[in-house]
Design a protein around this nucleic acid. Structure first.
Lengths: 151, 151
DNA sequence: CTGTAACTTGACTTTTCCGTACAGTTTGAG
DNA sequence: CTCAAACTGTACGGAAAAGTCAAGTTACAG
């Protein structure tokens, strides 16, 4: 149960671009440096973000990436959904089907219902937050980040 | 963003065993047939479930797997947690660290806070449901399973 | 006692996902 | 006009996950 790197890095790139302000654009090397990722990897993620319509790229010497919408209007859930798809695929039931049946559970699959509940819970959280929210780096002290998990 | 097959199959196996009743046990071929999975794969999952203490195995001709606790007491969240770990690993920040720093985000990483929120939301849902809940296969009609996703 | 049906275990193969590299295209500065 | 800096896209290699196979151990039925 984890996010794919694409999903996470996609959010991170958008946040960095948002921090550049509504007018300015950010280049791949800049994002790469600020997130500590390789340039090739950033380029790969940004390509998807562009294809999904979250950013526009301008080429040439003064190029870079900019958001297509104000960061306040981009919900995190949108990005995750566009980049990673849903929790369960359409093949969910086919994987357990023995031919014509849907699920091997006599008539209805309680697990799928639970998965949908989980999906809804995730979406609720992710849709509350926007890229702008993340960009202003909310009030979390470093001690809270490190502690509380091992100790 | 998806569950690993181990997590999903683990739940499925436990549900099948729970359906065999509190006294009866289920063999690998039986579970395999009911879930439409290969016997080898079922065996692999059950080994982990046994090591994590969710089931006990009896060998020999009348062998099989049985739950160590009543299905009502096994929360789905427990199983997921035991099988798949958490949403974010401990290496979460190390992956983005450039040496001594924690995160490349000046002082605090808003994404990690969001990830923790998501984790909590997932856990809340998963801990509400028990294996027994799933075993009685709640009231979901087959039409609702197929429709509503593509169309 | 013997055989069969079951669990146990480790290694192996296949598949999928990540990250990287490289060759190509575009654009503005000088 | 030329060059450098930027984006674009494909293709390759490695690592992790998923699934499979085979050999071994146990235990009950007959």
């Amino acid at each position: 149960m984890k996010f794919s790197t694409l999903e996470e890095f996609g959010i991170r790139c958008l946040v960095q671009i948002a921090r550049a302000g509504p007018s300015g654009a950010l280049t791949i090397p800049e994002i790469s440096e600020r997130e500590g990722l390789s340039e090739a990897n950033v380029a790969k993620v940004l390509r998807l973000l562009r294809q999904e319509g979250f950013v526009v790229a301008s080429r040439g010497k003064t190029g870079g990436y900019a958001l297509t919408r104000p960061a306040e209007e981009i919900r995190v859930g949108e990005v995750i959904h566009a980049l990673g798809g849903k929790l369960y695929d359409d093949e969910f039931c086919e994987r357990h089907s023995g031919g014509e049946e849907v699920c091997r559970h006599e008539g209805a699959c309680g697990i799928q219902a639970l998965w949908e509940e989980v999906q809804d819970a995730i979406d609720r959280v992710l849709n509350r937050k926007t890229i702008a929210d993340l960009a202003q780096t909310p009030l979390i002290r470093r001690e809270d980040l490190l502690g509380g998990r091992r100790s």
